[in-house]
């Protein structure tokens, strides 16, 4: 597989091989991420294709580094938008379950903190993550960024599903406290 820089060079050269190389290297990760949100292989395929098009349009001028996080975020955003459209009809993906777990931590919509910019919230989440152990950070990100199932996370971090569930439960509690301390009503 090509190095990220070489793939980006292909994009800059407007070579069609760029998409192939990108798909070869990160296609599986992207499909899985999208599927975890949408619970539909067809929708996931569509979102990933749309993300590739987005990358094609963004590079150049962008020269993302790291490329994986860049493409994953694009896939995630497109998949989330797709999910929002289909939310009323579907309530059974890993994303739904993962978000449902956060219901206790997060309050209902349309409250005071609805003004809080997502970027500011992201910064606070980053600060919170910095205070966690590396393993807990990974577990949290795999669950709520990559939308992995407990089984997948357990395999990645060599813990049991029980361990993962308990860890996530504790992290959510800590996060709730962390947000409250910073004046974010949860």
């Amino acid at each position: 597989m090509l190095e990220d820089e070489r793939i980006i060079d292909l994009f800059f050269a407007r070579s069609e091989q760029a998409i192939q190389a990108l798909d070869q290297k990160y296609g599986k990760v992207c499909h899985r991420l999208s599927y975890n949100i949408l619970n539909s292989p067809e929708d996931a395929e569509e979102c990933v294709s749309e993300a590739y098009l987005g990358v094609w349009n963004a590079i150049p001028p962008a020269r993302p580094n790291p490329l994986q996080a860049y493409i994953c975020k694009i896939v995630r955003n497109i998949s989330l938008k797709c999910w929002e459209h289909k939310a009323a009809a579907k309530r059974n993906s890993v994303f739904d379950v993962a978000m449902q777990e956060l219901e206790d931590t997060l309050s209902a919509p349309d409250t005071v903190e609805s003004e809080l910019e997502a970027r500011e919230l992201a910064r606070i989440i980053e600060d919170f993550l910095e205070a966690q152990t590396k393993e807990n950070r990974v577990i949290f990100m795999r669950r709520y960024a990559y939308m992995d199932s407990y089984t997948d996370i357990a395999a990645r971090v060599s813990l049991t599903e029980n361990n993962v569930a308990v860890r996530l439960n504790r992290i959510r509690r800590k996060m709730k406290q962390y947000l409250l301390e910073r004046g974010i009503s949860v």
């Binding site: 989330l80 978000m99 956060l102 919509p109 970027r119 919230l121 992201a122 960024a145």
Partner: peptide, 12 residues
């Protein structure tokens, strides 16, 4: 804050 806003923040 709701879960959609949280999900959006996670993307950032």
């Amino acid at each position: 804050m709701n879960k959609v806003k949280f999900a959006a923040a996670m993307s950032l």
